[in-house]
Amino acid sequence: MNYYHENCVNSCNKGGKNIKKLIVSDNPSLLPSSAEFIKTKVIDNEQIAEGVFLISLERHFDFDPGQVTGIHFKPAPDARLYSIASGINDEHIKILFDIQPGGFISPFLAERKKGDNLFVTTPFGWFTCYEKPAWWIATGTGIAPFASMFFSGLGKDKILIHGGRTAGSFFFQEEFAAVLQENYIRCCPGENREGIYSGRLTAWLEEQENLPADQAFYLCGRAEMVVEVRDILIRKGIPFKNIYSEIYF
């Protein structure tokens, strides 16, 4: 089936560089009608922790930090959505993902090698944060949209609370720590290393006595984490209108 044709080219201008977009002509996607599939190539695929990968792809579009892209091995309705983890001026698009048991895209993605083809959609979504100051709260691969914001130069006046199961699950921690310094808080139960709070992210939040009610809080992670953190923030006096959430689904 001819899902796409490569001579249908849109272009956008990034830093003076004309970026070709290979647009799918017969879009069967079940994504928002504005999203179009683009054929792209794998630049690199690195396993950065057990079951967690950072895949770099040829870049064919501009995006806002915090947006998602749909990924599939063909332009098909059931593309999986992933937050873009790279910065707006980076040469490649980077996606941080973990292998989902029973998933059909993530195990496939984990096996991709340099030069392999993939299909991505044009970016969409509104989990964006240009406000400052603000708090970013994430666990696991939920750090991806904040990484994109950070690598896009939006880290100033931000506090990043990063939860992980192990000390090795703080993806991009060197970059965050170097810039955010004391505003980068890592939380890991059972970890007694200097610079890491030994306990859950939720426990750290519970210990805080004066969270700023006038600042925005951005949460990203699994539903359980987002809901529990949101409850804590509300209990501590943060208006729910200052809480923004993105949940994996």
Binding site: V68, F124, G125, I243, S245, E246, I247, F249
Partner: peptide
């Protein structure tokens, strides 16, 4: 603020 899905 009511429904996180709105962000996507």
């Amino acid at each position: 603020h009511l429904m996180p899905v709105e962000s996507v």
